[in-house]
């Protein structure tokens, strides 16, 4: 464990808590893409199957349970409890266009052709594009509530911090994982446009308005 990865995990937990609080407090999931939340739930389900087979550390197991529980709770809140506030019309990204290419790529490019490893690889590829429906929704509505932009900033920062973690681990531990690094770079690049808008607008108290 290093400071970059720990900061990344905290940013990740922070993003999830911001989202849950936003939905719970406002009793609405307006402006949030349910499809992205489903993709995140799939990411954690396919990545953390080893929760019961491989013990890494207490921290690792606790965080896996936390991510599985909170992603399930978010999907439940969006599609069951506050279903009436879910923005079906704008949340129209075809997630099969993400699921199928990620599944095919994970069958072709992976570290080991075993069920667990291919599912882990699928989860890594899927996570890198899972935010696309959310960014698509924000671009369609042309704006995002400030709380939603804080959520996206924290979520984007988590994998950006993981990139620093991988640099650190390569230099210090001679450890690297090209699949995770490649997907992490793609994932972080997808947020760059949003990071720019967040820093130039939201931090100045303006609303996040996308150029129409």
């Amino acid at each position: 464990m290093n400071i970059f990865r720990f900061a990344g995990d905290l940013s990740h937990v922070f993003a999830i808590i911001i989202l849950l609080l936003k939905i719970w407090k406002t009793r609405s999931c307006a402006g949030i893409s349910g499809k992205s939340q489903i993709l995140f739930a799939v990411v954690y389900l396919t990545r953390y199957l080893d929760l019961f087979t491989t013990y890494v550390s207490l921290y690792n197991s606790v965080m896996k349970v936390l991510f599985l529980a909170t992603s399930g709770a978010t999907v439940y809140l969006m599609y069951v409890k506050f279903k009436a506030t879910y923005d079906h019309n704008h949340d129209s990204f075809r997630i099969e266009f993400l699921l199928i290419p990620c599944a095919l790529l994970s069958l072709v490019i992976n570290h080991d052709f075993t069920v667990m490893e291919v599912l882990w690889t699928f989860s890594i590829y899927l996570e890198s594009v899972a935010i696309l429906p959310q960014l698509f929704l924000v671009s369609k509505t042309g704006e995002a509530e400030s709380i939603t932009s804080h959520y996206l900033f924290a979520l984007g920062s988590y994998r950006a911090l993981y990139l620093l973690n991988w640099v650190y681990r390569y230099m210090v531990e001679s450890h690297y994982d090209l699949i995770a690094i490649f997907a992490g770079v793609v994932q972080t690049i997808l947020y760059c446009d949003f990071f720019y808008l967040y820093i130039t607008k939201v931090l100045k108290g303006k609303k996040l308005q996308l150029p129409a």
Binding site: H12, D50, T54, V56, M63, K64, S174, H175, D177
Partner: peptide
Amino acid sequence: ATATAQHDEL
């Protein structure tokens, strides 16, 4: 340098 056999990251 080695790729991770066991995935120790979240």
